[in-house]
């Protein structure tokens, strides 16, 4: 039995009368791409926000590499190796693409209390950043102001920022949101080789993407996981089909 890297135990989060997380328990194994799917408003983003630390759960515990991180603030979780992307693109619009990623690189290097040497000409920041930009296919746009990039490119940039922190686990909240088919496929191609090296919790609506990438899938309905299984079994699971996939085939 493999030790899970992330263990979620009975997470509950209410907004007034609405239980957006209604007892979520989840195990994510090291190196797997674990998809979290569910209809709009199922509580996927709410769950991710609690894992990243942006929201505090009302009940339940979150263990990362065996350590209870439930009370840790966002930045501390990030430093432990739990990175995230946002459903609504979150970048530094006035920095160049390169600077955006360099900020992620810098974060992992420490040395942030250096007040004197010029940062932009510091190759130890920019070289790894350029390498990651290259990986997501943005190296040609390294010196473009991020706010001026196309939507899909901004999504890729955000992924690059996540990768550049060299995380142990990446929480991706709908990385393909608002992308066209072509861009979405490119994103899939970027993520696929990461499989095995990097643990990913992937929230995604596009079922083609999910079935192409995921090792396991958890289906969330009304804040509750109704099934966790391999893509094959999820496809054939009656409850899931009834609740979510729509019983068409």
């Amino acid at each position: 039995m493999v030790e899970s890297i992330l263990t979620v135990q009975n997470l509950v989060k209410s907004f007034g009368a609405l239980r957006a997380s209604d007892g979520i328990s989840l195990d994510v194994l090291p190196g797997e791409i674990h998809a979290l799917i569910g209809p709009n408003g199922a509580g996927k983003t709410t769950a991710v926000n609690q894992l990243s630390g942006e929201m505090q759960p009302d009940e339940g515990r979150i263990l990362f590499e065996g350590q209870d991180i439930t009370a840790f603030p966002v930045d501390k979780r990030a430093r432990l190796g739990l990175a995230r992307s946002y459903q609504i693109t979150s970048i530094f619009p006035n920095f160049t693409a390169l600077e955006n990623v360099a900020m992620a690189v810098q974060s992992t290097q420490g040395h942030n209390f250096r007040f004197w040497e010029n940062a932009k000409s510091d190759l130890s920041r920019t070289e790894p950043a350029l390498e990651v930009l290259n990986r997501v296919g943005l190296s040609d746009l390294a010196n473009t102001i991020a706010g001026g990039l196309a939507h899909g490119q901004q999504r890729q940039l955000e992924l690059a920022m996540g990768l550049a922190t060299r995380p142990k686990m990446l929480l991706l909240d709908e990385p393909m949101a608002g992308m066209g088919v072509e861009e979405s496929r490119r994103m899939t191609d970027i993520l696929l080789p990461l499989k095995g090296d990097l643990t990913i919790l992937l929230v995604e609506h596009d079922m083609d993407v999910v079935f192409a990438l995921a090792d396991r899938i958890t289906v969330l309905v009304l804040g509750k996981p109704i099934a966790t299984d391999t893509p094959q079994n999820i496809r054939n699971n009656e409850h899931v089909r009834a609740a979510y996939l729509g019983d068409t085939s």
Partner: peptide, 29 residues
């Protein structure tokens, strides 16, 4: 001038543009 162009200065500029993102990158802003 030196400060705003240093690593520390870049952290400041990052905080101005998107503090949430800075925290998610691991900076205790």
């Amino acid at each position: 001038y030196r400060i705003v162009n240093s690593r520390f200065g870049m952290v400041m500029r990052g905080c101005k543009q998107n503090e949430t993102r800075m925290r998610a990158l691991g900076y205790s802003t």
